[in-house]
Nucleic acid binder design. Structure first.
Length: 819
RNA sequence: GCCGCGGUGGCGGAACUGGCAGACGCAGCAGACUCAAAAUCUGCCGAUGGCAACAUCGUGGGGGUUCGAUUCCCUUCCGCGGCACCA
């Protein structure tokens, strides 16, 4: 028999579903379920990673719908970004046209997959209807002091004369021209995400539906450490330098101090001294290095003495002040007390510059303790620490902190690794920052009623120099919202992560022209019950989205501060052990697979080949196998219908009948559990395959129950519906003649059918399998043991051995322990 | 360096709470059908020994707990991912 006509079937049902608004969703009284896949960047081509992502989401959506939920399953486009602008520079196509065309092309490639999206809720972040609200959010942040501008060091390519995002710096080089990337001070916009650091960290504990791995990554990223700030007066000056330390217990061992070269005091302290020139050239040298070069762990520690001393406020000791490449200006206070005895970095530096090393903590057992090449960073017993000598360092930690506070020279504090979010981009294709600079009024936000600040079209893309928006006269000049005099617009646009930090909220009320969204609607749908996407977004996107949602909760725009209840991070699609990529030439295009085997086979394969969290190794033969399986089901159903198998002699209730009934209902149970709780689609599908194999065997028997065959085939069709939607819809139409398989309720297994009268148990001797016997499932322990001891095979093995004990687990095993 | 995840047949993977290791699929081998091939259907398919029934070994390596360990504990090796001069 020929293969099933997948092409006709898929086109037919896609058209049917679309024309009948099959996937349209509105709020109703049913329990809601919001399933979301991370929206794509419209590159113009979908790849297997997309197919995998959306297939997983579609199974969840269709399954939940069959379970009676009101399911929201939207799709949209993360449509701002650099590739569109590069295309403009390279080919002279306007980013808007390029993006719109790509969205259409990607939609044309997505539709053949049969995904159950409600396209009425589509959003594109580059559309003014959308970015108007991104700007509106910016203004709310600004009002709250959560958006602010500051001078800071940013990546700078001297050849392109432009700022680069961290992602655009590849191995310390500019991704476009391969020049060495340096640093430059620029005035940039920031979001104050650090205000939410503690909340974002604490609330990770309230995300039981997130993978542990992602939670750990976020915690580490936020990077909380507790310690103290201590003020060290500068000798012969009225200034003090505040250092941050996590080890106040080592303060007696501080033999020098290091400032970050960019620390504001440095320039002041050396001004007009003999050290000025040397310090300046050191700083200039560092500025020409990228962060990557500068912070590489293998780089040698380097620094210089700046001619000043400070006073250790606890010991009164006078210690030299250095600047060095290993102290960062934007962590802690940008200054440290260096304790070479107990910090490896400080030790390396001290050895190089011949600075004294004073050990102040020794291991508990140690007698004469000295430091050679390795710093001692563990706990221990205090030494050379005045009154604290002999104490455990953990006790001394608290006592010294107390002393610091009593003396008023410092206090307990907390430091985070998380930095504020730099959102300015010197780009065209992004959301314009709605700010006007006025000579009289300064920095003035655009009035809400004047949003959106639209992207102009009279732009030149030269690929060099400043933000392209500076080339638009119509954009640049705008009246000050406060005094009306001519001002200048902000010409930077926002990082595209801003756009994607709230799109899931807009889906809940995508067409609203009055408001960002209606709170009632958003509260009805939020949280996202299941979010699905690549683990590469574990930190940035997911953290930013959490941050935004928290702020929106504080603004009373939403009720729940956490956006994503459950998170599934799917693995990559590999071929020959490597990620599919053009440069490796190992790309399999979804289009060619759909043409050859159809979308249902493609979907089935990506779900069957591996559990969703793991990487998936592509296999052409594996795809073929899935296609064969669908054909096998097809033939089974068609043959049963044509040959009247449904009507053959019924209700004989043989052993085989009972077994098939058991198989049918146990398969329902297995598939339900696999899909619902664990997202193990691979085992769900293999369970259905087993049932199909069983049906093939059963139908060859002499005496079969036609009704049971029908039940079996129907069950297979219904259970496969979320996985292979077109295939099952067609089979449903053929075998049942009416309705849609997708409008059915998800089947429930019969409890009686999965009760087995007989079970197979194993007989072990010393834990090793010796024989298997089939017994009634309600047999007592005693009877089981009797049976085991009467077993001929067991008797012959037991001969001449003495029995130590017998362990019997009902319905499972009998283990006889012998000597 | 620190943190996390993983290691099971020729391959992708299964074994959910400690109880038959290898479900299901792929590849391979054999048979049926066919003039023949493809497709399809059926059977076999971890290693070693044996004609066989069967025996022994086997979940990266070593050790432990247990009647019993892929599963729990210790240790070690390898692979992958994240962070990385964060004081």
């Amino acid at each position: 028999m020929a293969n099933y006509p997948f092409k006709e079937i898929e086109e037919k049902w896609q058209k049917h579903w679309m024309e009948n608004n099959h996937f349209k969703t509105v709020e109703n009284e049913k329990p809601k379920y919001y399933v979301l896949e991370m929206f794509p960047y419209p590159s113009g081509k979908i790849h297997m990673g997309h197919v995998r992502n959306y297939s997983i989401g579609d199974v969840v959506a269709r399954f939940k719908k069959m379970q009676g939920y009101n399911v929201l399953h939207p799709m949209g486009w993360d449509a701002f970004g650099l590739p569109a602008e590069n295309a403009a520079i390279k080919h002279g196509i306007h980013p808007d046209i390029w993006t719109t065309k790509n969205i259409q092309e990607m939609k044309d490639q997505l539709n053949p997959l049969g995904l159950s999206y409600d396209w009425d809720r589509e959003v594109a972040t580059c559309s003014p209807d959308y970015y108007k609200w991104t700007q509106w959010i910016f203004l709310q942040f600004y009002k709250r002091g959560l958006a602010y501008k500051k001078e800071s060091r940013v990546n700078w390519c001297p050849s392109c004369e432009t700022v680069l995002a961290n992602e655009q710096v590849v191995g310390g080089l500019c991704e476009r021209c391969d020049s060495k990337v340096g640093k430059k001070m620029l005035n940039q916009w920031y979001f104050k995400i650090t205000d939410y650091a503690e909340e974002l960290l604490q609330e990770i504990n309230n995300l039981p539906g997130w993978p542990e791995k992602v939670k750990i990554m976020q915690s580490n990223w936020i990077g909380k450490s507790t310690g103290a700030e201590v003020n060290f007066p500068i000798n012969g000056s009225d200034k003090t330098i505040t250092v941050f330390t996590t080890r106040p217990d080592t303060i007696y061992g501080a033999t020098y101090m290091v400032l970050a070269p960019e620390h504001p005091y440095v320039a002041e302290l050396v001004k007009g001294t003999e050290y000025e020139e040397e310090v300046n050239s050191f700083i200039t040298k560092l500025q020409h290095m990228s962060d990557i070069e500068r912070t590489a762990t293998d780089i040698e520690k380097e620094g210089i003495f700046i001619g000043h001393y400070s006073i250790n406020p606890i010991t009164g000791r006078k210690i030299p002040i250095f600047i060095a490449n290993y102290v960062l200006v934007d962590y802690g206070t940008g200054a440290i007390m260096a304790v070479p005895g107990h910090d490896q970095r400080d030790l390396d530096f001290a050895r190089k510059y011949h600075i004294e090393v004073i050990p102040v903590i020794k291991p508990e057992e140690a007698q004469d303790f000295t430091i050679e090449k390795e710093a001692y960073s563990d706990e221990g017993i205090m030494m050379s620490s005045g009154d604290f000598n002999g104490l455990k360092s953990t006790e001394a930690y608290d006592k010294i902190l107390q002393l610091i506070e009593e003396k008023g020279v410092g206090n307990k504090t907390i430091s985070y690794r998380l930095r504020d979010w730099l959102l300015s981009r010197q780009r065209y294709w992004g959301t314009p920052i709605p700010i006007i600079y006025c000579d009289t009024c300064g920095t003035v936000p655009v009035k809400e009623e004047n949003l959106p600040v639209a992207l102009p079209t009279d732009i030149q893309f030269t690929g060099t120099g400043l933000s392209p928006l500076t080339t638009s006269e119509t954009f640049l000049n705008a009246p000050c919202p406060s005094c009306g005099k001519m001002g200048r617009r902000e010409t930077d646009t926002m990082d595209t992560f801003v756009d994607s930090s709230w799109y899931f909220l807009r889906y809940t009320d995508a067409k609203n022209t009055e408001k960002i969204f209606d709170k009632e609607k958003t509260d009805y749908w939020m949280q996202v019950d299941q979010y699905i996407g690549g683990v590469e977004h574990a930190i940035l996107h997911l953290l930013y989205a959490r941050f935004f949602t928290r702020v929106m909760k504080d603004l009373n725009l939403v009720s729940n501060p956490e956006p994503f209840k459950n998170l599934l991070t799917q693995g990559m699609v590999l071929k020959d052990g490597a990620k599919m990529s053009k440069s490796k030439g190992n790309v399999v295009s979804p289009e060619e697979i759909i043409i050859k085997y159809g979308a249902d086979t493609a979907r089935l394969f990506v779900l069957f080949a591996a559990p969703p969290e793991r990487d998936l190794e592509w296999s052409d033969q594996g795809v073929e196998g899935c296609f064969r399986f669908l054909n096998r089901v097809w033939r089974l159903a068609i043959e049963a219908l044509d040959n009247g198998l449904y009507n053959r002699k019924a209700n004989t209730t043989t052993k085989e009948d009972k077994n098939l009934k058991y198989m049918i209902h146990n398969t329902i149970k297995r598939v339900t559990e696999d899909v619902e709780g664990r997202f193990n689609f691979n085992t769900a599908i293999s369970a259905v395959m087993e049932l199909v194999n069983e049906l093939y065997k059963y139908k060859e028997l002499e005496d079969i129950d036609g009704g049971l065959v029908e039940e079996g085939i129907t069950t297979v069709i219904v259970l496969l519906a979320p996985f292979a939607p077109h295939f099952t819809e067609e089979l449903w139409a053929i075998t049942k003649g009416e309705g849609s398989v997708h409008k059915l309720s998800w089947p429930k297994y019969s409890k009686e059918a999965i009760v087995q009268d007989e079970v197979e148990v194993v007989i072990q001797i010393n834990g090793k399998l010796k024989d298997k016997i089939t017994i009634p499932s309600d047999m007592t322990k005693e009877a089981m043991e009797e049976l085991a001891f009467n077993n001929e095979k067991i008797q012959s093995i037991l001969e001449g051995k003495s029995i130590v004990k017998v362990i019997t687990v009902p319905k499972k095993l009998i283990n006889i322990v012998v000597k």
